[in-house]
Write a protein that binds this DNA or RNA. Structure first.
Lengths: 137, 137
DNA sequence: TTAGTTGCAAAGGCTTTGCACGCGC
DNA sequence: GCGCGTGCAAAGCCTTTGCAACTAA
């Protein structure tokens, strides 16, 4: 059983075939899928799984901190299974593809106290915009 | 006439009362409004303006680079009229308030060529997450 | 057994579109 | 007058919800 499923069971998750399949889809491929893409891949393994269940499951995984929700400027949210390793995103303005990247340095260092306006800063999300190799041709 | 309207007319925009009102709403207040909020404020000045026209106009302003679209994790996109001054955003995790900030240095410098995976990078959007003074009390 | 989960279908929020009328140039 | 812009309403996309049937523990 995957690490993800082990952690979920440890938190008292009822393990159903649907949840197992969603977890496997996310675990198997470190790509950033939309809910609908997760559903499409899940259906290949479990034909009767519903969209609602996929949405419910993804929402729970986000709440539990196992998966990150990535809202790009596109339409559908994407889900990032790489929640346990700090990273930032590279988003293709052409096709919406997302890649994980690991910039150097601490982005918070770029924001001096005078620019914090009394906020207690907890983190920074960086989205690098550009064109992927395919779209830049 | 506002700078914004001057620029738009220079680009051949047909100047209608609807477009003038949308431009005035954005120009008058450097807050980050949703399309619906823009519509609500526009209606105060021009009661018959339709949502479709507001959406069309905002979309054109984004295409022309006069306004930025900001997709936060919430539901509706927000429109940022401050497109001519590079800046980043400070978002309160408590109440959702957004503030413009101006970090030091070039965020692109933190992404070495080895981390670009063949993408042609055009920019970086940084969202600092934290709690505003009110919410951190 | 039984509380939590699922599937279905319908509703919901936000945005876009098709088309006839209106208006800036 | 021409052609773009507008308003309306309907459709579209993505997501959530209500509820009866189901099932893991």
């Amino acid at each position: 059983m995957s690490d993800l499923l082990v952690r979920l069971r440890a938190r008292g998750w009822r393990l159903t075939s649907q949840r197992r399949v969603v977890a496997e889809v996310l675990d198997g491929d470190h790509v950033h899928l939309t809910a609908d893409e997760v559903h499409a891949r899940a259906v290949e393994r479990l034909p009767e799984i519903s969209r609602a269940t996929v949405y419910n499951t993804l929402g729970e995984l986000v709440t539990l901190g196992e998966v990150l929700e990535v809202a790009t400027d596109g339409r559908a949210k994407r889900y990032d299974p790489n929640a346990h390793h700090a990273h930032q995103h590279l988003v293709c303005s052409g096709c919406g593809a997302i890649r994980d990247v690991h910039p150097q340095g601490d982005p918070l260092a770029a924001l001096p106290a005078a620019e914090r306006y009394g906020f207690v800063i907890s983190g920074a999300d960086i989205t690098y915009r550009g064109l992927c190799p395919d779209c830049s041709r």
